[in-house]
Amino acid sequence: MRRLSLFNSVSLTLGFAFLYLPMLILIIYSFNKSKLVTVWAGFSTQWYGELMQNEAFLDAAWVTLKVAVVSSTIATVLGTMAAYALVRGGRFFGRTLFSGMVFAPLVMPEVITGLSLLLLFIGIGLDRGVLTIILAHTTFSMCFVSVVVSSRLSTFDRSLEEAALDLGATPFAAFRLVTLPIIAPAVVSGWLLAFTLSLDDLVIATFVTGPSATTLPMKIWSSVRLGVTPEINALSTILIGLVATGVITASLVSKRNLVRMQREERAAERAQ
């Protein structure tokens, strides 16, 4: 492989510096002793300590976590069902409308999704709080799950499933023993995507929540509006660290699975 030209090396370096420097600065300055966020005054972890004592942030983090776990789990089930209906459902009444409803939320501006759901919840008189945030998050993230799962489903060899059925498996057993293991990576990444979307969401949650529930992004939002604070830097560092660990682990696991799958396929070919 030839080496990168000067122009390409410069593009890559500048491009990735642009993507990562802001976060790097944030992380470095979260260990700053000074309350003044742009002046370095020595290393300290005091802001992490203060964060851990901040009840409001801890409560908000707990609410966010609950919402994210519940909504992403329901969204994964519903999204996988929707993907199945779209890829395997054949013709059914209102299919076009259904696929439209699955794809539209992906491009809908958050302000509109938030507003429309709020109008619904007010219209039916549902108390706004954790439940309404969960309903809202489930709805938009199930569409993302469905896109991820259906792309996997449409490339997957259907005869495997048919073979299982021919050999006497019930449809459910065929799904559990054949289909699910094959689409599992897509289902897992769908869940992860739904989970991060839920953790991340500010706009929709702000619309549909009531006074009883504040999520972490809402809490961050209200303090960020007043400017940069070292506590928020510390909190951001923790969140960035968690996400980076998660994504890198997931990619290592999927790489290992890929290698194993390729090895098994080669072994199967040799056996033939």
């Binding site: 802001p22 976060m23 600065i25 944030l26 991060t196 953790l199 991340d200 500010l202 992004p217 961050i220 939002w221 960020v224 940069v228 928020i232 951001s236 969140l239 960035i240 996400v243 980076a244 998660g246 994504v247």
Partner: peptide
């Protein structure tokens, strides 16, 4: 994958 809000805040 990292929070949109935090990236803007940075």
């Amino acid at each position: 994958w990292t929070s949109f809000l935090i990236r803007v805040y940075a």
